[in-house]
Amino acid sequence: MDFLQPVTWAEALEAKAAHPDAVPIAGGTDVMVGLNFGHLRPALLLDLTRIADLRDWQVADGAVRLGAGVSYARVISELGDRLPGLAMASRTIGSPQIRNRGTVAGNLATASPAGDAHPALLAAGSEVEVASARGTRRIPIDDFYTGVKRTAMDDDELIAAVHVAPPSGPQQYSKIGTRNAMVIAVAAFGLALHPDRRAVGTGIGSAAPTPRRAPAAEEFLAGELDSSGLWESRAELPEATIARFGELVAAAAAPIDDVRGSAPYRVHALSVMARRALSWAWADYRSANQEA
């Protein structure tokens, strides 16, 4: 196994162009497990940790451009206000050691349906900035996941950054695991209220071949909020609306039975998480009004 350690982004893109089968490694929290257990035997490892630029984040046009090398720990400590949903998701990930090493871009590149960042990115609305020697493009998060551990990236591309829109309303994130920390998601749910667009964003994890949104639930809730004037009145949400939202989120899932949980449990848990997340987000929305 060969090992390349570019120190500039241009070098990294050249290396990836020359060796499309090279496996990029950043935090190594997935790659090293694969290597240690013999599940992954790449001809070439492409170490991205020497590229200083990747470790930066900036705010551009109101959105956060999160460099591919930013760790979960830094998302929590530096971006809790700008990326609340993603920060909540980051808190659920692994142990402090894993959060110090692992990156959101690594989560995207692995594209496991159980990746913890995905539901938050889906709900908030994001774009993945990928680059190759040929140039740079942005892939909307909705188009990024194409199958189990497959993405819309080409073989010569690397993730440069993730662009996440700023929150115009409350965000929530919940994840089920069978212990109270350091656990792979059995099911996860991300929610973002977008009062600026009078829209609702959702994200479902670990309950379908890819992370996905629940469009029917989003449309239903946005419609209810609109038609009842709730965006403006910030009145209490009817119980029936919350319950229906939960049902529609659950209906969007297509889970399997596996060692971590049964398919019916995942569906059930999503409906509960969706209801609770909505009630918390709405309570935040209402109290934000009182403060204003």
Binding site: M88, R91, T92, Q172, Y173, S174, K175, I176, G177, N180, A181, V183, V272, M273, R276, W280
Partner: peptide, 16 residues
């Protein structure tokens, strides 16, 4: 959250 079932995975604030 650390005192709740589910811990920081934020699954309940006391509900259920």
């Amino acid at each position: 959250l650390r005192d709740m079932p589910g811990g920081v995975s934020n699954t309940t604030h006391g509900e259920g």
